[in-house]
Structure formats: C-alpha cells, structure tokens
Design a protein around this nucleic acid. Structure first.
Lengths: 177, 177
DNA sequence: ATGTTACTTGACATGATGTCAATTGACTCA
DNA sequence: TGAGTCAATTGACATCATGTCAAGTAACAT
C-alpha cells in the first residue's frame, strides 16, 4: 500500500482493512504507527536482501569500481523501498522513534559511502579538493532518497538514467583526473 | 519564530500569541496556515531583495563565473529563508496550495540553474556527458534546500564551507576539463 | 444616534492517532 | 465438562491541530 501511494496518506484504518482487521486490532501487534513502519522497513530489508545486493560493491578491486558498484546498488534499491522510506521520512519530522530509525538506516548507508571514498583514497584517486570526511558527506547527500525522488519524480529521469547519471556525477565530483 | 524553531512546531495559536491576538483573529487576516506561510515567504523575498542578490550572477562574463556566483548567491540565501522554507516544505506534503507555492519558487530557482548551465554551454564549457536539461536537473537537485539542510545540520558544514564546497562540486560535475 | 471595523469569547466540526473496557468465539487442557 | 487463554471485536473516549461560526464589545467616524 505504501508503494502504491508513494508513502503518503496510508492510515492505520486502511492498513487494518487490507488485513481484514479492525483498526484497534492493529495496535495489538504494533504499539504505534511509527513502530509498524519501522517493522515494515526491517521486513523489507530482509526480504530484499540488501547484504547480497552489496556484494558487487564489496568485491570491487578498485576505488572507481567500488564507487560505481555502490551507486548502482543503491540506485536500484531506492525504488524498491521508496514507499516505506517516504512514509518514515514524513513521520520523522514529528516522531522521535521514526527519526531514530531513519537516522540509523542513513548511518548504514553513509558507511557504504565512506567505504567507497576510502577505496578511492587508497587508490590515490580521490580528488585533491576533498578530505575523506567531506567527500563522504557530499556523496551521502547526493545519494539521498530525497534527491532520488527529485530526479525521478520531478525531473522525470528513468531509474536507469538515475543510475547512469549518478555514476557520472559521483565520479566527476570525487575522482582525481 | 519559524527561524527559531527551524520551521517545525509553530502553531497558529503560537503565532497569534506573539502578535497579541486571539487564534481566531489570525484567520481574519489569513484564510489558512498555508496562506500565512506563503505570504510570509513573499514578504521575506521582498525584504531580503533576492533580485539585487542575483545581480552578480547575471553580470558574470563567463559560464564558470556565472555558475560560481549563482551557487554563492543561493548558498547565502538559503540560511536566511530556511525556517519558512522548511515549514512550507513540511506543509507541502499535505496541502495543495502550499505545494503549488513551493513548486513555483523552485521553478524560479531552476531558471537560475538553467541560465548558469546555458552560460557554460555558450562557452562550450559544459562537460560532454551532459545535455543541458540533464545538467540543469542535476544542479537544481544538488542545490536543494534539503541538501543544504543535510550538509549543514547533519554533516555540520558551516555555511562558508557549504558555499565553497558546493562551488567545487558544481564545477567538477558540470565543467569540461 | 448609527454604523463600521477589528477584535474577543466560546462552542463546535473534522480527522488522525491512540486508549480502554466489556464482550465474543475458538481452542486447549485437566 | 468446566476453566482458562488468546485473538479479535465493538463502542466510547481523549488529544491535538486546523478551521468555522455566532454573538458580543470597544473604539472610532459621520
């Protein structure tokens, strides 16, 4: 349902109906909407097997290859989690638990960015303008779900275009020439 | 008040109190919270004199200079409007009028991005990987308020760092070498 | 004296989340 | 067969913010 509605306007009563339950019964399973969304995210992560998807990036033998693989992995992952992610993103502004859960996930994503930047650095391929921290911040921000949303929904990029162009952007931005 | 609270949690009753008015009286002046926020944005734009601030960018004699001046202008503008912008950004998800107002402002910002990209193109300085449309999308997304928020608030960049590094990012990303 | 203007107070509707109490139907176990 | 447990139901209620409506008031102008 979250995918269908892009994370917006899905109420507890809608979820209950779809599960053939009363609204109140949902609270017998999840203490709050935030908790339900967080559990959904974890379920999705497990089902989509993020770990396996990350293998190509981890197996990369050069910094540039690692960066490219990471961007591709993430770029193909976002559309699959977009609905839940957006719902959590909206809730985060008013719910501390949702904010914590989101920040936690983003911290994990940031680790991937740092690993890619470190791999570039190890190859002496990181452009001289950047510190490793700064480059990680920049890459992490560029790859945000909000930016994916902006580029695909507002700008009309296909996901393939997103991945291809984001690879170009990341490489031009970070890699020494 | 919006600046103080970073655009979050400012209710009609708070605004009314600060103006020594009853909550209901505010509705004698603004039909809805959305309208009040939109009016506030327009007021701020006027007071901060965006047009004058854009002069250096318009006066640029090269594409690269124009890009750099535009990034600086925008990067110094965002922190001044952040509170209202964030409030509008939050409301946009649930209010059509707020969404329209926001999109309108973002369209204006996008024009600035396109002008910078066009100036690069006119100098034959736009990197070959980019179409003008694609480059505009990318620059526009990179300069989003959300990204500014991410880099300054989450990553702890000072605004000076934001401007300097964003110039580097934009240039590396878009300019041919 | 009359009307206008800006505002006040108090009451109410709406919509979503979340809580609570009482009840029901199915299943299990001694 | 009777007792207990479990999942769920219904209905009522609290909360919180937005937004609406009606009736009243104080200052001021003509």
């Amino acid at each position: 349902m979250l995918e269908e509605h892009r994370g917006r306007g899905v109420r507890m009563v809608d979820i209950a109906k779809r599960a053939n339950l009363s609204r109140q019964a949902v609270y017998l399973h999840f203490a709050s909407r935030a908790e339900l969304l967080i559990a959904t995210t974890q379920f999705l992560d497990h089902r989509l097997d993020l770990e396996t998807r990350l293998a190509p990036s981890r197996a990369a033998t050069s910094g540039m290859q690692r960066l490219s693989a990471y961007v591709a992995c993430w770029g193909n992952y976002v559309p699959e989690i977009y609905g839940v992610a957006k719902a959590l993103l909206l809730l985060k502004e008013s719910d501390a638990a949702a904010a914590a859960a989101w920040n936690n996930r983003m911290a994990a994503m940031r680790d991937g960015c740092r690993a890619a930047v470190d791999a570039l650095h190890a190859d002496s391929a990181l452009a001289l303008e950047w510190t490793r921290g700064g480059a990680t911040d920049a890459l992490w921000t560029m790859l945000s779900v909000e930016n994916w949303e902006n580029l695909t929904v507002e700008c009309g990029w296909s996901n393939q275009q997103y991945v291809d162009r984001m690879k170009v952007m990341a490489e031009r931005m970070l890699v020494k020439r």
